[in-house]
Nucleic acid binder design. Sequence first.
DNA 1: GAGTTTGAAACT
DNA 2: CAGTTTCAAACTC
Length: 752
Amino acid sequence: MDTPDKSTATQPSPSSFLSKFEDSPVFNYISTLSPIKPFSLGHSTQPLHLNFSSPQAFKTPPTSYLREPKFTRASHVTEVSKNNFSYNGSEGKNAETSTAIEPADLQTEEVDKTDRNVTVSTTDESSKLVSEIPRPLKYECDSPENNGVHCDAVKTHREFIVAGTELFLEKVNQDNSKEEDCSFGKEMGMQAIRMAQNKEACEWDEFVCEASDILNGHSPTKENYHDDPEDSIANSGMLSFVATVLQPPNEQKTDVACPDLSEHHHLEVPMNKPAENRNTNERSQMSANDTRTVLDEEIVHHFRTTIDDKQQETTRRRCLVYEMSGSHYRKLLASSPNKAAGSSSFSNNKSLMASRPGGNKFSSALPGIGLHLNALAAAAKDKIIVKRQTLNCTRQLISSPCTTSSFDYLISDTKSHTTQMAPVVVKTEAGEQKDEVQVSGDVSENSVVGEGIEFSQSSPKKKRRKAENAEETDSCKRCNCKRSKCLKLYCECFAAGLYCVEPCNCQDCFNKPVHEEIVLETRRQIESRNPLAFAPKVIRCSGTPNSLEELNKTPASARHKRGCNCKKSGCLKKYCECYQGGVGCSLSCRCEGCKNTFGRKEGSERIVFEETRFFQRNASDISSHSDVPITDKENHDQATSEPSMNARQPFNFGGMAPRFPTLPNGHFPQSCTSQNIDNSDKIKIAVPEDEALKGDYLLPTTYVKSASPNCKRISPHFETSPGWKSCRKLILRSLPAFTVDKESKQLLEKLQ
DNA sequence: GAGTTTGAAACT
DNA sequence: CAGTTTCAAACTC
């Protein structure tokens, strides 16, 4: 397969020419060619490279064990489909594809009917799409240059794979041009293209990130996900959107109105009629082909995997959310009737979220997720994630092009993180570039809470009122720096990635848009010293349930990324960052006389031991070659303190993927050389902080391969090693642990 | 509001 | 890396 010319792929051709082309004998001939024969996983990446202009959006994890089996499957599917498949741009394709898929692996795959049904009912289009997307396609996005969620690229690539000819590129372009008037969905796609091309795929990135979060976060608890229609819709929205991007042009063509429209209406507004009609038809189609949903899930999972890399960035966005939410949790908890001390504090979260009048389930489903995920939900309605004024207390984000700070990614980053060295100052719609530019979209729907900002469902008036009360004032952090010029982490504003605003009492403040360069440079310096300097102090995570039941039971929690060092406060005052963050102390804390009501260090140790035993048992059960099973002690700690976090974060948002990183096949990751068995009977996994925050670890897929070839990804350490301190042992990845485990087990069974 | 305490951040 | 200093928030009065 020759690599398509890039220009060909990007430059739309006149539709007339295309149709002419399609009718041409050459086209027909090409169509009859065995299209996928040369297609192989290894080579499949080549064509795609050309088409992706942005480096991150679809970047797949460098390696992934999960991918391998999937890949095998995908290959198989491809193989099978290849035999029966000839591209004719007709609807028969669906049947063919699914037929090809069915017998192979999917039959052995236990599919939850609920999942299926819900998938069908909520993500018809996406399901359809997903089921049709050759899995390898995702991998083909795996290229540093592929990251731009280039609609064209994806479509083109897919088309390319299917047809085995670059002629389809033209077709794709044609389709794109046709679809331009298909409202937001299309706009998004096109915008994404534009943005990707311009390396400014902010909103697109945002959506992709959000989508990945959604995918990651919701998938694991499919039951939850599916049980909740709204969630399903929300998720399906993202899935649909994602799927739409990957949707082949011919499919779009066959749709009555604007196929994508319905998809994106998942995101924004209720589906319009045509979409419904279409969905109805598709539903019937789907019902006749239930197994597709399996593939859907798998592909979605793959997509998730693919875009999980994106989370390396989004994680950081999330970071700030955690950071903010931590203290705010406490505030809310304090006012919550369910106010409970100790480790159950977070259990309030759910009720907290749910108790919000009118709070949608989505919000409750994303407790603590924080801004960007909730903003996603908001985006579904508003299409706009950023540039939305929320509260009086508004801040302008420091948009550091290079920075990894959470807030950058939270909002500004959505605009600029692909625009390296091009700081973006989020401005109000009015254009006033005061310091008071708000951070996020109108997330009001989602009751996002944060230390500095609180989003609620309330109207602007209410917001104003809220802002006026003491609580709100308090939530609007302002610094009083005198000597640091607000350019050090002492400054809360600066540390939060925010510019100082008027209410601040700082002196000689340089943390203002006017001094943007200084700010950015300073941030850069600080980050060079400590890449996680702007990372969230409190990271919420969840456990690694092996079943849904476990998922609900297994405590998830949060912890301070570095642990506190309290000596006198007993971790009972806000001096203690753990306490301030609303999390319990963990073993990483060096506090003395810890009495943290959110979880004491000692308790953590005890529970850690218990969990360790559990995992050891698992390890021995599952595999004997986990000679170096290492668990994240701190993850265990976390998992112990807030049992209800799962309830709060049913989808692992924010969190952590598997505390105990097992491979899909149930094996523990084979260690790199640095991996060793701890002296203690604890199984531990240490993940460098930065890596953990990147989140790759959580991707179960990464455990295998990432750890495999060169051990780049996993850098386990002895917890007792000196370097341990500098290692973050927690995992930020919000990968659906449950899903993975389930799948892993299935794969393991197959293998056995 | 001033002063004190505290612990993180920064520095050496 | 440990000890010290600086800093600003949290707290107390």
